[in-house]
């Protein structure tokens, strides 16, 4: 049986091997920064994290009807506020509220 080849005899073979297969030949195990190049790019997957958002400005430009949509609840709220005001139950004016009254009492 033949003795196993030593590392020094195998060195040229290793060099040729990396040349043929296009891998990095670094027999002295120096820090040549190939680690940085081998890592995958993380940017593209980072962009897909959040679901796509709707751009309202461009949407209204293409479909003008979108800007004229009314929210039923908001309309109802404004109506209610108007009614409260008519009944004299609107918000107090500045200097007429509870806090202002307390302040004047203190002095």
């Amino acid at each position: 049986m033949r003795p196993a080849p030593t590392a020094s005899t195998l060195a040229p073979l290793k060099a040729l091997q990396s040349k043929v297969f296009g891998t990095i030949h670094n027999p002295d195990q120096l820090r040549i920064g190939s680690k940085v190049l081998k890592q995958r790019l993380v940017g593209p997957s980072m962009l897909t994290y959040y679901p796509p958002t709707i751009d309202l400005a461009s949407l209204t430009k293409t479909v003008p009807a979108v800007g004229k949509l009314v929210h039923f609840r908001e309309v109802q709220r404004l109506k209610d506020v108007e009614r409260k005001k008519m009944l004299g139950k609107g918000p107090p004016k500045k200097g007429e509220g509870r806090r202002a009254a307390m302040k004047s009492k203190k002095k």
Binding site: R31, I32, G33, K35, V36
Partner: peptide, 15 residues
């Protein structure tokens, strides 16, 4: 990312 990666490669390459 690409340009940063290139700079990083140069900075980390001890040769």
């Amino acid at each position: 990312e690409l340009i940063r990666r290139a700079y990083k490669y140069i900075a980390r390459n001890t040769t």
